[in-house]
Design a binder for these strands. Structure first.
Length: 754
DNA sequence: TCAATCCGTATC
DNA sequence: ATACGGATTGAC
């Protein structure tokens, strides 16, 4: 063949002739770099971070060039790189290291993680924006000397005397075999030292060069509560905007501007313009010459932060990575970040992987939202990726929300992060008046309200707000989450005898339960035909909206749900019926918020039920006006329940501490580390038999999963988490080497436990 | 004693 | 998927 002749004439590059490549093969036993010779002709293009094509096991496969080294440990003879797909260095060294760490943490393959981290190439986009970018690239990278990129240039990096092939600074990440990080400041490692006082652990922060360097810098990088900060005239010199409403807010902004690795869990005040706060934190970081990555849950939140950033930073200083973008626009924006043309990236889940120059701050908003969990292998959680990234880059981190997750609480209790909260007095000024209602069910006197009876407090509160000219938000459960039921005889929807909410059937229980107030209706009989039999039906938000509309005659009713999300409503009287997460903003805030979504609270099967309820309530209640402007919240639930108590006092910290304590008692995440193994029984058994479980590991299960599948849970202490992941990955490697036919799914920290 | 064939394993 | 090494087999 002609090609063979050409190949025979190829010569290896003169310097650093060996390329270490991560091949795109999803097999656990091949999760390590493979060495190839760099043809002299590709010497220039074959830089760390580029996509390559190589011949692997007789096939052409894609891969990423991780590093260039002097020689290979491989005994056999090396093949040449087949080709450098493009000289574009799409895998940033920081991201390569991060990806390896995340693969290890989640018992997954580097190749799988890289598929999540680097978007598919779009050649046209690359060449379209390339000439200009190439021309302006050196000036566009003011950090070139300090950036890791400089170090990964094979020519710059390696002295001829470099003894070990791996002496090259490169994208090369730790080997998969490297078990636990020894970094005491890591979230995981810290947890193993439960006895250590927060102060002792936080003092690790001081080891960062920035924190140690500045004489004016407070010793504690995580920013302690400092009374002077909130009151003093410093605010004038360094305007903190809305951050001065929080005790440690201005100090936190100062820390990020000075490049200190301040890490905080932020409990936003009700009514907070949180996108503006995040934009201010980003701006402070950029002012200090560092980059920022911001992750939010959905397109609407993204839109808000996008606009806030444009306002605060000016145009062209950030890009928004939206999951809904087409491949070319997605790649275009990724390239803008990758080429260090913008210092700030905001986006949904996948944006955790966005390269930015000199990362100084990572932000995640509403980390309890389940969309932050990646559904593709190895199922990493955005919060986890970001915090790992902050640890590796030794940069600042901000975990913000109206609610606080168990994980956020753990960061505080281990001293890894500090709290950013408002003073009680400030909180009181900003909060709506919040009251539960459970017992006070009456028929509203208003004849129009006969169809959909609400608890009278809820009805009166809404009515008053409407009459005062304000919009009212009604949060109802999402359709399809739970089947509703209707009378088997006359098909009339089965209604709660107390509050007229829709009755539903929970799992195995055959006692219908109200979706709104949670009461069981054990002896239900149809009010129309008195039949006692029920059949499944579906009642959605729209139907609820119609009925609520009749309860408030003369006022417009609007709905916001999954399919059609309202983003904002004017400051005019209207009833807005919304499912959780789809609540629009109201200009000036809602006059009243009614919380009828209590089903999650009742489903005891879900470990996170109470936390999730709390989160939905706080997110909706945060949209109400403060009490002194008439803002009121009514939650239709028993006032003695912990989430209701926490809501009334607006104390997400108290609730999260309580949740975490409970999970510690029960040995549940995040207090313990769990993993699940799912597949056909024989495959699960095989994998477990191959797993060298860490000391003290517990096996729970099997629990049946969907069709023919079963699921085993493994539990270890957090100090053994890395060992467990390593053991599972090794076992998966043995199976894949054997070409095991039946697949098993390994999930570390699975999003759904039961 | 050597070539043809089979099987398991690594994949650079 | 394919390529290779080592073991196995069968003919001389």
């Amino acid at each position: 063949m002609g090609t063979k002749g050409v190949r025979a004439e190829r010569e290896p590059a003169e310097r650093l002739p060996v390329a270490r490549v991560c091949v795109d093969v999803p097999l656990a036993h091949l999760d390590r770099p493979f060495d190839y010779l760099v043809p002299a002709a590709d010497d220039e293009a074959a830089q760390p971070g580029v996509r390559v094509k190589v011949r692997f096991a007789g096939q052409q496969v894609n891969g990423f060039l991780l590093s260039r080294v002097e020689s290979s440990d491989h005994g056999g003879k090396l093949a040449y790189l087949e080709k450098v797909v493009s000289p574009e260095r799409v895998l940033d060294p920081e991201i390569a290291t991060l990806a390896r760490a995340i693969a290890d943490r989640y018992a997954g393959n580097l190749a799988d993680v890289l598929r999540l981290a680097v978007p598919p190439r779009h050649a046209r986009v690359e060449t379209q924006s390339s000439p200009a970018a190439a021309d302006s690239e050196p000036p566009e990278r003011p950090d070139a000397a300090a950036s890791p990129d400089a170090a990964v240039s094979p020519h710059a990096a390696v002295s001829p005397h470099a003894a070990s092939p791996d002496a090259t600074a490169s994208l090369e990440a730790a080997s998969p075999g490297a078990v636990a990080s020894r970094d005491v400041a890591s979230p995981d490692a810290v947890v193993s030292q439960d006895v250590a006082s927060p102060g002792a652990v936080v003092s690790q922060d001081v080891a960062s060069p920035e924190a140690a360097g500045g004489p004016g810098a407070p010793a504690d990088a995580a920013v302690p509560v400092d009374p002077d900060v909130t009151v003093s005239t410093n605010d004038a010199a360094h305007p903190a905007g809305g951050w001065d409403s929080y005790l440690a807010g201005p100090a936190y902004l100062r820390a990020v501007r000075e490049g200190r690795p301040a890490r905080a869990v932020w409990s936003a005040l009700p009514g907070e313009d949180w996108p503006a706060r995040i934009a201010e934190a980003a701006a402070a970081t950029v002012l200090g010459g560092r980059g920022v990555v911001i992750v939010v849950a959905d397109a609407r939140d993204l839109d808000r932060v996008d606009r806030a950033l444009a306002e605060t930073l000016g145009e062209g200083r950030h890009v928004a990575l939206n999951a809904a973008l087409g491949p070319s626009e997605r790649y275009r924006r990724f390239l803008a970040a990758s080429r260090h043309q913008v210092p700030v990236v905001v986006g949904t889940r996948a944006a955790v992987w966005a390269p930015v120059p000199r990362l100084g701050l990572v932000v995640i908003w509403d980390d309890g939202d389940d969309v932050h969990a990646e559904p593709r292998a190895p199922y990493p959680h955005a919060r986890d990726v970001l915090l790992t990234r902050a640890r590796l880059a030794d940069c600042a981190a901000l975990v913000g929300g109206f609610a606080r997750t168990g994980e956020g609480q753990l960061l505080l209790e281990t001293g890894w992060a500090r709290e950013i909260v408002a003073d009680r007095a400030v909180l009181r000024r900003r909060s709506p008046a919040i009251a539960p209602t459970g017992d006070d069910f009456q028929l509203a006197r208003d004849p129009g309200a006969v169809v959909a009876r609400l608890p009278s407090l809820a009805w009166q509160t809404a009515k008053q707000a409407l009459q005062a000219g304000a919009p009212v938000l009604v949060q109802v459960p999402r359709r399809g989450y739970l089947p509703s039921v209707a009378c088997a005889e006359c098909r009339a929807p089965a209604r709660c005898p107390h509050c007229a909410g829709p009755l539903g059937l929970h799992g195995a229980r055959d006692v219908p339960v109200c979706h709104w107030c949670g009461r069981a209706a054990a002896d239900y009989s149809c009010p129309h035909c008195h039949d006692r039999r029920l059949r499944a039906s579906v009642i959605g938000a729209r139907r609820t909206a119609e009925e609520l509309g009749r309860a408030f005659p003369g006022f417009p009713v609007r709905t916001s749900g999954r399919e059609q999300v309202l983003s904002e409503v004017p400051a005019a009287p209207a009833v807005v019926v919304s499912t959780p997460g789809a609540e629009p903003l109201a200009e000036g805030g809602f006059g009243a918020v009614l919380l009828l979504d209590t089903w999650a609270l009742l489903s005891r099967a879900d470990l996170r039920a109470a936390e999730e309820t709390m989160r939905r309530w706080l997110n909706a209640a945060a949209l109400a006006r403060p009490a002194h402007e008439g803002g009121r919240v009514v939650v239709v639930a028993d006032g003695s329940l912990a989430p209701v108590q926490a809501l009334i006092r607006w104390d997400p910290g108290w609730f999260a501490a309580r949740e975490l304590a409970e999970r510690r008692d029960l040995g549940f995440p995040p207090a313990a580390r769990m993993a699940s193994v799912t597949g056909q029984a024989a495959a699960v058994a095989e994998l477990l038999s191959l797993t060298h479980l860490p000391d003290g590991a517990e096996l729970l299960g099997p629990v049946p999963a969907s069709d023919e599948q079963e699921r085993m849970l493994l539990r270890v202490t957090r100090s053994r988490a890395a060992e467990l992941a390593h053991a599972l990955h090794e076992a998966a490697g043995v199976r894949s080497a054997r070409k095991a036919a039946l697949p098993v799914r390994i999930q570390v920290d699975p999003a759904e436990l039961f």
